[in-house]
């Protein structure tokens, strides 16, 4: 057993920037775990999750929430979901595996992503300049999630409220994505 502990540092050092009608801030305090779903066990996994915390498997590019709203599942591929949930410990994988209690395969990805929230009444105006998918209010509803490419960077976009979007990029692209959003905000606002 080592006598030291590695301490997690957030990808963007808690960055937060205010623009007129838009706030751009790093999402902290969230964990992200990939839950791989073996095809023959879809039904068994779903019934286990429903029993443990009221979750059902979402449709493609949609999300579902647990009874207490603390866990959100994103379906970005047919055979896997991403669990996005409030947790700050170093053992997110064990934590979610215990809470879901389903026979799936879990991989902690929390520290490999940079998470940025773009919120405020003009958030869509800023994002539509860099996002190639249609994020208009009635097409990309609250709870929708999609994986796409923005400014040549692979990005996951999740709408978590009426005027709030969470963007995820690989951690090493976090600063570039933050810059792209800020440039777009300066151009639009």
């Amino acid at each position: 057993m080592s006598d030291y502990e590695l301490v997690v540092e957030s990808a963007l050092n808690g960055a937060e920037h205010e623009f007129e009608g838009v706030t751009v801030s790093e999402v902290v305090g969230k964990s992200l775990v990939m839950v791989a779903l073996p095809r023959p066990k879809f039904k068994e996994i779903e019934s286990s999750m429903t029993k443990s915390c009221g979750l059902v498997l979402p449709e493609m590019e949609h999300s579902t929430q647990s009874n207490d709203s603390s866990i959100t599942l994103w379906r970005l591929q047919k055979n896997q979901v991403l669990a996005y949930f409030s947790y700050e410990g170093n053992d997110a994988e064990v934590n979610i595996a215990n809470r879901l209690n389903a026979p799936a395969y879990y991989t902690d990805q929390s520290d490999t992503w940079a998470m940025i929230r773009v919120s405020g009444p003009r958030s869509r105006d800023v994002l539509e300049r860099i996002c190639p998918i249609d994020i208009s209010k009635n097409v990309f509803s609250v709870g929708n999630v999609s994986r796409t490419i923005m400014e040549h960077i692979g990005t996951i976009i999740y709408r978590d409220d009426d005027d709030s979007y969470v963007l995820l990029t690989m951690r090493s692209f976090g600063v570039s994505m933050l810059h792209a959003i800020e440039v777009s905000a300066k151009n639009v606002l």
Binding site: M60, E61, K78, P132, I133, S146, T148, I149
Partner: peptide
């Protein structure tokens, strides 16, 4: 077929 119209850049 599953996700609808997407840019070929993806």
């Amino acid at each position: 077929p599953l996700l609808g119209p997407r840019d070929s850049e993806e």
